[in-house]
């Protein structure tokens, strides 16, 4: 007679004594091997993302005139597209020659932000995100980072020029 322990079967096995054809085919080691392969694939993906982040070129835009300074009253905004036609942007004239401009895409989920003059802040109505007027920094709400800033300056030709965008 053998001394090997007899495997204990669970009670439900006695009540429902069926056997599935493939139920014993995946061992713990095989299952873990698939997990490790998955982890390796994700590590490779992470390295790929890092390489892509390093090598890609971002369109920060070329300097170009946006609008005549005289066409934007103090305290008013002007909508334009920069650096490409797919990038909505908004300009605010704060003083005589004091202008700021930002990407109009909220950094939360890409909704359009607008200026609330009475509260002096950029506001995203989708999820109540708010940004500081001059810096575009997040004041409140879910946005994780500041608005994309567009460097602008009024020049002697009477135009407001966009000089480039920071990510």
């Amino acid at each position: 007679m053998s001394d090997e322990p007899v495997p204990v079967r669970p009670v439900w096995r006695h009540d429902f004594p069926y056997e599935a054809a493939a139920e014993d085919e995946v061992t713990r080691r095989e299952f873990t091997r698939y997990l490790v392969l998955g982890a390796g694939a994700m590590a490779a993906g992470n390295v790929g993302i890092a390489v892509w982040t390093q090598l890609r070129s971002i369109n920060t835009g070329e300097p170009r005139p946006i609008v005549a300074l005289a066409d934007v009253p103090v305290g008013e905004t002007y909508l334009f597209r920069y650096p490409s036609d797919d990038d909505p942007a908004i300009l605010l004239r704060l003083g005589d020659r004091d202008v700021v401009a930002f990407s109009q895409k909220c950094t939360h989920l890409g909704c359009v932000v607008f200026y609330e003059s009475e509260l002096e802040r950029w506001h995203c109505p989708c999820h109540e995100g708010n940004f500081e007027t001059r810096s575009g920094r997040v004041i409140s709400g879910p946005p994780p980072r500041p608005l994309g800033r567009i460097e602008v300056e009024p020049r002697d030709d009477g135009q407001i020029w966009a000089l480039g965008r920071t990510v």
Partner: peptide
């Protein structure tokens, strides 16, 4: 991005070690 990739590779190597 590079720091994340480095940690990810180390974690994957650790998982392989466990295997």
């Amino acid at each position: 991005a590079w720091a994340t990739a480095a940690v990810s590779v180390v974690v994957a190597a650790g998982a392989a070690l466990f295997l």
